[in-house]
Write a protein that binds this DNA or RNA. Structure first.
Lengths: 97, 97
DNA sequence: CTGGTAAGCAACCATAAGGTTGCGCGTGGA
DNA sequence: TCCACGCGCAACCTTATGGTTGCTTACCAG
């Protein structure tokens, strides 16, 4: 999932989708500087990480954010960060004794 | 920075360092399945993202976490997530009017 | 049913990334 | 002083990745 987040283009896509409004590929492509196919590929990567989801509507497919996953990522970082904190606390305690 | 987090080996390294105790490269290498050079490369990537820092002590260099950066990453995710939330709230409000 | 628009599929290309091997260098201990 | 240990540097190999082009499929409107 972090790998999916680790690309500028994909982060930009997330940013666009963070607007809340579902968007079609061609709309996401507009002004992106890369091809529609490129965008499509990136979207599939994001979808593979569960960060985004698409629903077909007529001849266009609409993509939207999957917030749960973002929260998961945040929690993972919290975990490491917190583990670090408590370890340091223990260490400090140990040193001060 | 997410790119730096987006590799299993590097996440594992962070996990080890999250123990709070600074570790040498050879120690981090032990049981990692890859070469010392590989670990070294990954550490430099992490350092490049500011997630980790090293200090030379005698003939070994000790690596430790840089917690601030983890918090930054978390904040970034929060930002997207929150932007999504508020947009949805606005949208909901709009729909309900 | 015909044409245009939105997207999927597949092949392909160049470069970046993960990993290895080989060698040289400084430091600490006997 | 000499040797072993822990690292850094550089070259190299292989596979993933970001991106493109070309062609096909699906849907809607006239």
């Amino acid at each position: 999932m972090f790998a999916a987040l680790g690309d500028e283009t994909r982060l930009r896509l997330l940013g666009q989708l963070a607007g809340g409004e579902p968007m079609s590929i061609s709309r996401l492509t507009a002004g992106s500087g890369i091809t529609r196919q490129g965008v499509s590929k990136h979207l599939r990567v994001l979808a593979g990480a569960g960060l985004v989801r698409s629903t077909r509507r007529g001849k266009e497919s609409l993509w939207r954010l999957e917030r749960r996953r973002l929260e998961e990522a945040r929690r993972s970082l919290d975990l490491i960060s917190r583990q670090w904190d408590t370890s340091l606390a223990r260490l400090k305690l140990f040193v001060e004794e």
